[in-house]
Design a protein around this nucleic acid. Structure first.
Lengths: 254, 254
DNA sequence: GAATACTATTCGATATTGTCGAATGGCGTT
DNA sequence: AACGCCATTCGACAATATCGAATAGTATTC
């Protein structure tokens, strides 16, 4: 591990959280000397990874990140293969669809199809959610035993009054996910919003992503027909990326 | 400048270009020892900035970039303020709209409104274009004299047979941009696609972004009415971010 | 405008870290 | 199994990153 790179990543992470920070604030947050942080920030700035806020002394994340993330999305094979299927799923169900992957202890939305009704909807690609409070995340937890262990040993933060924060209750729920090949979430992340999700596995059998149907809670639970459509979509996408055995089995990756 | 951070950014840049690279390839590309590159890559990997390609020894860009870029987009004040206006512009003109900023010698699309006709369209946020071959980029060049000098001292790469690659011709065109407060592009970036763009300036008078209407070349040139709508939109957005004098003046930033 | 307080930036000595060559391990092909 | 190529580990030490002190810049108050 190269310390200077770790520290640079720490600056990016701090700016991800607080959005705008001055050098002294960053130094305090990272426990480093201001002149050290200044060197790090200037190096990141030279590459467009951070920029100085117009008209102030504070720094924020920079445009190079957007360009790089565009390449990340282009390069992501599961996403590329899933897109046509998620679009069709959105059309057939009339719901918005999310494709998510694990990022540390969270789930990151890497593709989003809006609900086809033409309503104004937030763009969600790049959004991260706590894994325990989203159907996407519960799928990833259910099939990656190390990930589940790690998340369940920390505190499960309540996002709403309905979020499951009791570890034994969540473990039991994850067992049910594997039985049904479907994870559910009702009002746990955002009040009024519920979802169901299914796993996407690759050639090695590992669950590498999940696909989720999001709906207003007034339309929850979805019919068996919708659930089966979701399973079929997940299976189809899995097959496209070499995952021939669906549903997958929970495993330890390393 | 911290060398290790520069080198890490070099790795990200190499992966942005070639998408998938092994350690030896990266080492060759960067002119460093394989063991040095290995250390850099492992440090980036620990933060999710790069990942190992499933089932191979090659590396590619990682999910953290997407999360960070989402924060970048959220933090970008011009973009936040522009969004409602570009949406209205798309609705009124029936065309797709791009909002762009300078990233080194290119223009980076930071917001995109699809054409309202419901047709299938590529998601363009995060896309970068050569500045000389796009209306967005020409606006940025016209108002930032240092940027123009820098781009015009390098070779202007032809993207199509219509791309203006003669420096004196482009300089003359940039003068016309300032006169009209509108830049144009016909088939210069992509055959069959043309565009007009206008500048967005901030409180200091600097042009910090441009807004562009994109249309099929069969619909080019747009009417005066559309051009005035574009100017008005650029002016409105400028005013929202403190740019009270529109149209702006060309300037040197430093 | 001057004084003050706070933050950013520069500078240079030096402790620490990153680098790279050599060795070892891993993987794919024949 | 042998071979070739690439990835990874290891350790010596040169180079670099770090941090404290000094300086410069900025905003606020009187």
């Amino acid at each position: 591990m190269i310390q200077a790179i770790d520290r640079a990543a720490g600056v990016l992470h701090a700016l991800q959280g607080a959005r705008h920070l001055g050098i002294t604030e960053l130094a305090s947050e990272l426990g480093l000397a201001p002149s050290t942080v200044h060197g790090i920030v200037k190096s990141l700035q030279a590459h467009g990874l951070v920029v100085k806020e117009p008209g102030s002394q504070r720094y924020m994340l920079g445009p190079t990140l957007l360009k790089l993330s565009n390449v990340y999305l282009d390069t992501h094979e599961v996403r590329a293969r899933a897109m046509q299927w998620t679009r069709e799923l959105a059309r057939r169900t009339g719901c918005s669809i999310r494709l998510g992957v694990q990022l540390f202890d969270e789930v990151l939305v890497i593709h989003h199809n809006r609900r086809p009704d033409g309503s104004q909807q937030m763009y969600e690609t790049g959004l991260s959610l706590p894994s325990h409070a989203s159907a996407l995340g519960k799928v990833l937890l259910a099939y990656d035993l190390d990930f589940a262990d790690k998340v369940l040993e920390g505190a499960l933060r309540p996002l709403t009054g309905d979020t499951v924060t009791e570890p034994t209750a969540l473990r039991k729920e994850l067992e049910g996910v594997v039985s049904a090949s479907i994870a559910t979430e009702r009002d746990e992340a955002v009040l009024g919003e519920s979802a169901v999700a299914a796993p996407i596995c690759d050639r090695s059998g590992a669950v590498v992503a999940a696909v989720e149907i999001v709906m207003p809670t007034t339309e929850y639970p979805p019919s068996d027909e919708v659930l089966n459509d979701l399973r079929q979509t997940a299976r189809t996408i899995s097959r496209e990326v070499g995952g021939s055995d669906w549903p997958p089995r929970p495993m330890r990756i390393d």
